[in-house]
Simulated scan of single mutants.
Amino acid sequence: MKFDSEELTAIAQPEGTVRWDMYATIHKALRACMCDALVAVGRMDTDDDLECAQTCQSVLGLMDFCHSHVQHENAFVHPAIEQHAPGESARAAAEHVEHEADIARIAAAATRLMGLPAALRRGEAHRLYHQLSRFVAHNFEHMLMEEHQHNAVLWAGFSDAQLQGIEDALRAAIPPQEMMEDLRWMLPALSPAERAGLMRGMREEAPLPAFSAALALARQHLNATQWSKLEGALAQAS
Rank of each mutant, 00 (worst) to 15 (best):
M202P: 11
S159G: 10
F76H: 04
C35P: 05
Y129R: 07
R122Y: 10
R105I: 07
C33P: 06
L208H: 06
R122H: 12
C56Y: 02
Y129Q: 09
K2C: 06
Q83G: 05
L128V: 10
Y129P: 04
L50T: 10
W227Q: 11
L170W: 04
T55S: 09
M143R: 00
G61F: 04
A80F: 01
L116T: 04
I106A: 00
R112I: 13
A110K: 02
E194C: 07
L50C: 08
S133F: 11
I174V: 15
A233G: 01
P176W: 01
L50A: 15
F76V: 08
E98N: 09
V97W: 08
E146R: 00
E7H: 12
E88D: 09
W185V: 04
R134K: 13
A118E: 13
R134S: 09
A237F: 03
I174D: 01
D160M: 08
I166T: 11
S5Q: 12
A216W: 15
A12V: 03
S191W: 09
A156I: 06
A210M: 15
E51C: 14
Q83D: 03
P188H: 03
Y129E: 12
Q149S: 14
A104T: 12
A32Y: 06
G42N: 13
S5K: 09
S228V: 11
A94H: 12
V136E: 03
V77R: 03
H150K: 05
C52T: 15
M1E: 11
Q54S: 08
A75T: 09
A53N: 08
E204H: 14
W20H: 14
A32E: 03
V136Y: 02
V41Q: 01
Q226A: 12
H150N: 11
Q13S: 13
L217K: 05
E181T: 15
N74P: 12
I81F: 00
M22W: 10
D4K: 07
M186Q: 07
H67L: 13
H84V: 02
K229H: 08
A216I: 06
V70N: 07
V77Y: 08
P117E: 12
C56T: 11
I103N: 04
A107H: 04
L217R: 04
R219G: 06
R195N: 13
Q164P: 07
L163E: 05
G157L: 00
R19E: 09
C66P: 01
L215N: 02
R122S: 14
T9P: 05
L8I: 04
V59F: 01
L120V: 07
R43W: 13
G197V: 09
A137V: 07
L163H: 10
A118I: 15
F140Q: 08
T17V: 11
R105S: 10
Q220G: 08
N74Y: 11
P117I: 07
S238Q: 13
